[in-house]
Design a protein around this nucleic acid. Structure first.
Lengths: 240, 240
DNA sequence: ATAGATTCCTTAGAGGCATTAAGGAAACAT
DNA sequence: ATGTTTCCTTAATGCCTCTAAGGAATCTAT
């Protein structure tokens, strides 16, 4: 695929992977505070400052590891989606959503890191660019929603009924995703995203432990809600 | 109010408040990583180890400061609620919800700490007890919902329609809140809580910056949704 | 009032972490 | 083979958490 990879580059790549694995091991086994430059270096068998030949510092190391997690999560969702290739968009969408929770539940520390990390969050200032991994993650469900919108549009609110400030923001976002969804449809997509991702974050970050021990049925109920919002139930029945 | 407070106790109390203020200042001005035992001590004008006479270590300091934030947030919500004393439950509830967001937006760093901190989260193991401050925070909306339930019950799902595992969890939670709400009503309350608190957390923790710059209208829309779920609109019309 | 106990604070480490600096050895390219 | 690049090492600085040991101020009880 890529151009000629020299022996040096291959070795470097292997070391990078070893570093990521070591950082992940420390995270999972001893918590996020244990992921220090020194500890990671020790784990891979080199001493301290050597790691600075791979990353400029602690922050960049953490960012790279986190980006890897996001890619893994996105890949899991894509795999689940593609396993349903040929099925109606709604089914592929539900498969991707369930894969998201399955991955998060299986890797809570990693998911927590994704949420806490600035890799997933930034984008405040106009200048800052969203990370490639975060974009890929976001686009799994966005693309499915856009496909749904094209093939079987879901109900949207009347733009005139939305507050002006919200309409402007939605118009900007609609442009940012290259018009894949018009503002009103983007609003529905974002509402769904907020409920789904919000629920998952609260579950994984233990904000709901005071009431629940197992959120699987709550998540499924949320999915049913979203299915209604997106008209997926109708699809299933009409499909006959 | 409390029994005789000696001069010593008053001084200690003043120092504790100074410590909290210093920690908060560091948090707001330089981020959470700047809140170290040494830096806080320096800020209050004593040197390092002196702080260990007030807290057993960094974790306890952070926990105490966070608990203070939670209390302040809960107090803001209670104040907003009580400012509407005499008004219908629904109005008091909306006031409390808006106060929650207002506080969070005004104090994003503090709110972020609340969310990230184990003070708000724990309760995993049977043994661990929920922190007094977290309980008080939770109870502001819980109590209002319970009052609403008593005076003007909102629609609830048929318990038989819920998955058994969910029903059991809700029954346990209903018992944990001393039957203030039956399981089905607790389910509605928790759904509302998840949507409201989840949205706020995602906003404050910058998980929605990729699409929105101002979430006030989104929050208001969420409140309208919840009002419908809880039958508050009906209340307003019938009240005439 | 005064002697003992308590409380608050200090300085002195030990041990860890992030990071920079300086240099050695191996691998590569010419 | 020779010079360059790459990878790694050992100092060394300055921060952090936290323990230990002791001094001074304050309170208690006689």
């Amino acid at each position: 695929m890529s151009a000629h990879t020299s022996r040096r580059q291959r070795l470097r790549q292997a070391t990078l992977e070893e570093i990521h694995a070591a950082a992940r091991k420390l995270l999972v086994e001893q918590g996020s505070a244990a992921v220090t430059v020194n500890a990671v270096a020790r784990q891979v068998g080199m001493s301290g400052p050597a790691l600075y030949h791979y990353y400029t510092g602690h922050d960049e190391l953490v960012g790279a590891v986190t980006a890897g997690f996001i890619r893994e999560l996105a890949a899991a969702m894509e795999r689940a989606r593609d396993a349903q290739a040929g099925a109606p968009v709604g089914d592929r969408m539900l498969a991707a959503c369930r894969a998201m929770r399955t991955w998060a539940v299986a890797h809570p520390d990693e998911f927590g890191w994704i949420f806490a990390s600035p890799v997933a969050a930034p984008n405040r200032r106009p200048g800052s660019v969203r990370h490639e991994a975060a974009l890929r993650f976001e686009h799994v469900l966005l693309d499915l929603t856009a496909e749904l919108w094209r093939t079987r549009p879901f109900p949207v609110p009347d733009p005139a009924s939305l507050p002006a400030s919200l309409r402007d923001q939605l118009t900007a976002y609609s442009a940012a995703i290259e018009g894949q969804l018009p503002p009103e449809a983007a609003h529905v997509f974002l509402s769904c995203w907020i409920r789904l991702y919000g629920l998952l974050c609260m579950e994984i970050l233990h904000q709901l432990d005071f009431a629940y021990t197992d959120l699987e049925p709550v998540f499924e109920e949320c999915l049913r809600d979203l299915s209604t919002t997106l008209g997926l139930d109708v699809t299933a029945k009409e499909a006959h």
